[in-house]
Design a binder for these strands. Structure first.
Lengths: 127, 127
DNA sequence: TTCATTACTTGCAAAACGCAAGCTTTGATA
DNA sequence: TATCAAAGCTTGCGTTTTGCAAGTAATGAA
């Protein structure tokens, strides 16, 4: 036996987490939602310039893994917004810790705005 | 202008952090070192079974970015161990936060041992 | 002399990525 | 009415990265 779930490399919580969001883009999409971006074009407008096919595939995967939900906000034409679930909002402390690490150790980065570190998961998810 | 450092996708601290360790394997190697693994074979023995060429390339990159150091512990034959720098040890809180998230939200994972959450960066790095 | 260990490197096929272009639905504009 | 723009994608295709297997070099042990 290798892992409870064959999609996981092992049962280690860290390994399981990285199997879900361990890539270059997923956490940036989640960051964007934390910063109140909701729509496809919003994510595309971020400075990292995520390729459109990658964005589509990440949104799909994050939805499939229950980290975000896709919710219509108008019908003609059908337009959806992407929102965090509780599972997704609970990634905020990870983002904050990682951002703090970079501010301390990566000279080329520019500090995140103060308010980012004051955000709390319970204010971010949908119900 | 896109980013201070052309290797970075943007100047966002999160983006900078992910440019360094945002992949499936890097944080697992760092986890291993936190758990007192030091040598090439130690990393290979972890349950995720990292491919040997990937391991070599990650160790190289982590060293180049100042997250780990490669240090000889014997000369005949020359054998080295990999240790965390301060920069690397300071990733521990990220690992702990991410592991806690997975324990809460990923049903298939098995909780990390208690002591993992009691570790502190200042006890992990070399001087 | 052969075998085992450690720490890698190399080759190659498969998968993922990234860029550009195209498509669909709808509302606005001329 | 014809054209245009916006939003949210999909498709094609070349490049890069990954992952598996095998091979290599240095040394010590049997």
């Amino acid at each position: 036996m290798t892992a409870n779930d064959p999609n996981n490399r092992s049962d280690c919580p860290l390994s399981c987490a990285l199997d879900l969001i361990g890539d270059k883009w997923s956490l940036l999409v989640i960051r964007d939602i934390c910063l109140n971006k909701k729509r496809y074009v919003d994510f595309q407008s971020s400075p990292e310039k995520i390729p459109t096919n990658i964005l589509a595939s990440r949104l799909k995967r994050l939805e499939e893994t229950g980290i975000i939900v896709k919710k219509p906000y108008q019908t003609k034409p059908l337009r959806c917004e992407y929102l965090l679930t509780v599972k997704g909002a609970d990634l905020l402390p990870v983002l904050q810790t990682l951002a703090a690490w970079a501010e301390k150790h990566v000279p080329s980065c520019i500090p995140a705005p103060e308010f980012f570190f004051t955000l709390k998961p319970e204010n971010l998810f949908t119900r």
